[in-house]
Design a protein around this nucleic acid. Structure first.
Lengths: 240, 240
DNA sequence: TAATTTTTTTAATAACATTATTATAAACCT
DNA sequence: AGGTTTATAATAATGTTATTAAAAAAATTA
């Protein structure tokens, strides 16, 4: 799991980041002091301090003299940070989390499709098309992993085509959203067919520059998934 | 400008962050080495290193042995980080940047309104309503600053009402978007009337739980602004 | 109760040793 | 000779240790 090529600081950042998102350290609760952390993980205080600073920069913790290091309020967390998103996966994403992802993903994907139809270049078309053919191939071979991979690539390519740095930045968000989705796919969406066709239709609209149409395609696809998630939640709540 | 209560590390973080977003250090270009930075800003190497780590955590720079500290690719920047967003303002946001903001803001606000209509609590209603009355008062008094302040508060209250951490996190994004907007308001939108009414209509829909209606209200408001920005860009491009 | 002292913890500096990376040059093979 | 591999040296970050300063909470005292 842990890449050994990471330097000590980054190793500790990931260790603590994961721990916080797993709930080992509670929101508002205290972490061990600098000295103690250094002791526990057997690294110097300076390396420890650097890790603390990095986590502070990501909004996960705050550290003040005499108060020590404490987990910050969740609304301070930089949820769009690649690392933090990754740690969410390591944590315990549930159906509610999946809904949160989908609630944002829906309008983002739709608008991205709209913008892509307006701003995509020939290179973007190539990228999207390649992801698409990979997806088709993977589906024919019934290769779930390859399908997922192509899916991620497709959506990233669309985001890239928007030429909007905010949407491009959301690549990470979409990637993690897809991973969380994957985790629940069996439960909420038994049928994985027709995935390719929906993506192909979206691409066709983008390539023709039909922004409104692309928007509607993306919107309805995401809307369908969101509906499934809502239903799954309703189901699980009625069971309990 | 610089708050003196910030510690040295944070002061340097802001100094360098602003410099990078102002373009003083170009993307892919090199910053002074750790030792040099310490020399320049007259702080120790440890404090410098901590600042470098924080900026690394925000995706602005990367530092590797022998290569030195260099400005990372823009697509690595954590654009949704509060600090980074703030530094964008200090930089030179132009109409294109405003468009980028609006392109994302539009669907986010619309979806937020939709979700708020579903999930808002009595407390949320109070918060939104209070912002609304502040806005009305400010408009009557022709107090631009107070209007802006109430505007920010209104949109933050709506985002909060979604109960979705991702939307709540986007408070910063919306706040900066509004500030960038404000900077261009005179140029792109000479008439600032009817602001209150649009917000009041949106709140009414949210309070009645009419999600689809709230969505449409927000969408059309944002759409109108985006259109104005698009037109302003077309105008300025035809002039040049 | 209010002011003061103590104690804990981070903030900051300094000096030093290590490791990783890259450019350069030397050696080595066709 | 030309190209490839292999040492080597230079550079800059990485990491450690030690010490002092400042801040803030808690305990003590007037």
């Amino acid at each position: 799991m842990d890449a050994r090529h990471l330097n000590l600081t980054q190793q500790l950042v990931h260790e603590l980041g994961r721990s916080i998102l797993k709930g080992k350290y509670k929101v508002g609760g205290k972490l061990p002091s600098e000295a103690e952390l250094g002791e526990i993980y057997d690294i110097s205080r300076n390396a420890t301090r650097e890790a603390v600073k990095m986590l502070t920069a990501k909004g996960l913790i705050s550290s003040r003299p005499r108060k020590g290091i404490q987990v910050a309020d969740q609304n301070k967390w930089n949820l769009f940070d690649t690392d933090v998103l990754g740690w969410i996966l390591v944590g315990k994403p549930d159906l509610y989390m999946l809904r949160h992802f989908m609630q944002l993903r829906q309008p983002v994907e739709a608008q991205a499709a709209y913008l892509a139809a307006q701003y995509a270049t020939a290179e973007d078309f190539d990228n999207i098309e390649q992801a698409l053919s990979n997806m088709q191939l993977a589906e024919v071979n019934n290769d779930a992993e390859a399908t997922h991979h192509a899916d991620v690539k497709f959506h990233k390519a669309v985001l890239n085509a928007t030429k909007n740095p905010f949407f491009i930045q959301l690549e990470n968000f979409i990637e993690i959203a897809l991973k969380v989705n994957l985790r629940y796919t069996n439960r909420i969406k038994p049928v994985t067919e027709l995935e390719y066709q929906a993506h192909a239709d979206l691409f066709a609209a983008i390539k023709k520059g039909e922004a409104a149409k692309a928007y509607e395609f993306a919107m309805s696809t995401q809307s369908a998934t969101l509906k499934l998630v809502d239903e799954a939640i309703t189901r699980s709540e009625s069971e309990a």
